[in-house]
Design a protein around this nucleic acid. Structure first.
Lengths: 128, 128
DNA sequence: TTAACATATAAGTATATACTAATATATGAA
DNA sequence: TTCATATATTAGTATATACTTATATGTTAA
């Protein structure tokens, strides 16, 4: 989920769109004019922003009024910041990495490599 | 600058790298083993993370010890959050957009379009 | 129900990105 | 100096992304 949001944010047109929406809710054709870009371009970027959760939409007559989802944004920033501060062993999806990290308690990569080569020998693969 | 950082964060391999570095400083070959990916792949992603300011590096013998630049990260998150909360007229790079936004005070896009057509006529371009 | 409007989607294309394999560079040790 | 190690860079390739143009869908008003 982090990936999707950051991807959405990591593109200048979309960054501009959400900054504009953060000021004021706008429909597609408003954005089209303010940013001076084509309608499909606005529409396509909005789709990505909506999927990421950063933009909300409501219908009003023919128009779709888009707005910045500030609640989600604030929550997301908090959440990610928290994620980046947690001790890694608490993060389930990193279980494998934590394990491998513990096998790292050697002084140098070199020593570790030798140990791996030894393992290879044991597995019948000869070192050259 | 926001764009560069978000692009760096919006990729699973890099996200994993900085989350690992947030736990513990590591050299390239450590990451290689922990993540079980190729050395150039680690190296290339680290380059992008360093350019974005998210990763620091120090030399120690043959090794380059990489670490998460938490000071920058925390500053960046604050800064971006601030950026997203400011009134738009305070943000210099949006001067043009703010101007165009003020020309938006009509009820509907349709009306706005007609007005623009009128302008076109004045400029000598005929409506079809 | 037709016309105008507002938006979405599709197709095509150019550029960007992420990867692998091969090679280059840099550092410390023998 | 030569070798092994640690990392960086290059070249090639496949996929993803952003854009444009054209077309489709949905909504309101005449």
């Amino acid at each position: 989920m982090y990936e999707e949001v950051f991807k959405a944010l990591g593109e200048p047109t979309r960054l501009k769109i959400i900054r504009l929406l953060a000021e004021k809710e706008l429909c597609v054709c408003d954005l089209e004019e303010i940013m001076d870009i084509s309608q499909p371009r606005v529409s396509q970027h909005l789709k990505i922003l909506k999927q990421a959760g950063l933009v909300k939409e409501r219908k009003e007559g023919k128009k779709r009024i888009c707005s910045f989802n500030r609640e989600f944004f604030d929550w997301f920033m908090e959440e990610f910041s928290f994620f980046m501060h947690r001790p890694l062993h608490e993060v389930e999806e990193f279980a494998e990495e934590v394990k491998r990290m513990q096998n790292l308690d050697y002084d140098t990569c070199a020593i570790r490599r030798k140990s791996l080569s030894k393992k290879s020998r044991i597995n019948g693969q000869e070192e050259k």
